[in-house]
Computed example of a mutant assay.
Amino acid sequence: MPSMMCTCCAAPVVVGMRKSQSSIGAAIAYWMSNTALNPAVLVFMAFVLPLKFVVIRVLLGLVLVFGVSHLLNRLAPEKSVEMEKILPPPREQRLPQTPFIHRWWKQLKGLTLAIVPAYIITVFILGEFGFGCFPRLTRTGVTTP
């Protein structure tokens, strides 16, 4: 069942499938079909690349999804997973005892201290050296053709 997700977005679904005791073949088939047979990517490829590339991707995607998942289903031993290992602990055991606003502020500070310097450095580098990466730009602005 290909849907319009990338691999990183489909990974949590695959983890949930495995926690729900689906077979390894079904989980891998879902994960790989989202990447190889993503309808949005196939349509985009049809617009920008020759049609043979789209056909090759679809054919290899079908081999990957059905062939590899079937092979993994045959090779992987099925282990029964105990439900205690799957189920999360009760809610009162998971939540820290600090108030929500303190946890939120701590996360905001950490993200700000990580993102803002990286943003400033990126803007500085693109401002200084961007004209080399983008030929239509000069130090004074955009050139006209």
Rank of each mutant, 00 (worst) to 15 (best):
M32E: 13
M32S: 15
V41Q: 10
V48C: 02
L49D: 09
Y30I: 03
V43Y: 09
K19V: 02
F44P: 00
L37P: 12
S33Q: 08
M45H: 05
L49R: 11
A29D: 05
F44Y: 11
F47L: 13
V43S: 07
F47E: 15
A27I: 01
S33D: 07
M32N: 12
N34H: 10
R18M: 11
V48D: 04
V48K: 03
S33N: 08
A40M: 11
L49Q: 12
K19R: 13
Y30E: 08
L42M: 12
N38I: 07
A46I: 02
T35F: 10
V43E: 09
F44H: 12
A29L: 00
V48A: 06
K19W: 00
S33F: 02
P50G: 15
L37M: 09
Y30F: 15
M32Q: 12
L37E: 11
A27N: 03
S33A: 15
N38F: 02
L42T: 07
L51T: 14
T35P: 00
I28E: 05
S23C: 07
K52W: 13
F53Q: 12
F53Y: 15
L42S: 06
V41Y: 06
L51Y: 09
Q21F: 02
L49G: 01
V48M: 08
S22N: 10
Q21P: 00
S23W: 00
S33C: 07
K52F: 11
A27G: 10
P39C: 04
S20D: 15
S23I: 01
V48Q: 04
R18C: 05
N34F: 03
R18V: 08
I24V: 14
M32L: 14
I28H: 06
S23N: 12
S20W: 00
V41E: 12
A27E: 03
V43C: 06
G25R: 06
L42P: 10
A40D: 06
L49K: 10
M17V: 04
S20T: 05
A40Q: 08
F53D: 12
S22M: 13
M45T: 07
N38L: 06
L51K: 13
I28G: 00
M45S: 11
N34P: 08
A26L: 09
A29K: 05
V43W: 02
A46D: 14
V43H: 04
F47N: 13
